[in-house]
């Protein structure tokens, strides 16, 4: 750990540029996975057999493929099919799709946890499926879903490092580049780990807050 603070000061600006990309990848794929997950979950609980089966198989396919393979597919295979994505686009798309499966299962569990009486009450005042979802089920499901959603955020922050495998210069890749050119492995990777931890802690506190709120009810 000799000269850690000296090295930290020197490498910090480069690593911060990696942090910026890490945040972009995390937020981008978080938004995408949320939208896709919500769509899969809605299809799943729609009561229309074709849609729910389609959604169930999609989720299983996505769940069954490692994130890294999904990323390679999007970045290296898609150009052969005529679709060229930038590394950043491929990373956000890949992580977004991969995590949409977990988001969908989480959302579905939240929706199905709502008392059936709530749905009947909504129906009995003339609400259709969509209005029932929007006004009655989803607002209540949010409270149940938020704590696991916060955990997914933390996992995504860490898994954004997998984007380094397709040349996205986020925090992990920047660290690796510095380490391999300076051989200061210990200092560099300690610094990288501390920076990930610094970003995770607010999220961990957020999850705790969500859990408290969900518990109160």
């Amino acid at each position: 750990m000799k000269g850690f603070w000296h090295d930290a000061a020197e490498f910090f600006p480069i690593l911060m540029s990696g942090v910026a990309l890490t945040i972009v990848v995390t937020i981008g794929s978080l938004l995408l996975s949320t939208v896709l997950g919500l769509i899969w979950a809605m299809m799943r609980v729609s009561g229309i057999r074709v849609l729910s089966m389609l959604s169930a198989s999609l989720i299983n396919v996505i769940r069954g493929i490692p994130i890294i393979v999904l990323l390679f597919y999007l970045y290296f295979v898609m150009p052969d099919l005529g679709v060229t994505l930038s590394a950043l686009q491929a990373a956000i798309l890949g992580l977004g799709i991969a995590y949409s499966a977990y988001q969908a299962e989480n959302f579905r569990a939240g929706i199905e946890a709502i008392d059936k009486g709530q749905i009947e009450a909504a129906q009995s005042i003339g609400m259709g499926w969509w209005l029932t979802m929007r006004r009655v089920v989803l607002p209540q499901a949010v409270r149940i879903v938020l704590p696991p959603y916060g955990n997914v955020m933390i996992m995504m922050l860490k898994d954004s490092s997998q984007a380094s495998t397709i040349t996205v210069a986020e925090l992990a890749l920047q660290g690796k580049l510095i380490a391999s050119s300076t051989f200061k492995n210990t200092n560099v990777f300690t610094l990288v780990a501390l920076m990930y931890l610094t970003m995770s802690i607010p999220l961990i506190l957020l999850v705790r807050h969500f859990e408290k709120r969900a518990g109160k009810r």
Binding site: E120, A121, Q123, G126, V136, P139
Partner: peptide, 19 residues
């Protein structure tokens, strides 16, 4: 929907929207 807006229902366990 038309039937349900004409015939309301009150449930044993109230089923009010808690939120």
């Amino acid at each position: 929907v038309k039937v349900r807006t004409q015939v309301s229902m009150v449930f044993q366990r109230f089923n009010l929207f808690p939120h």
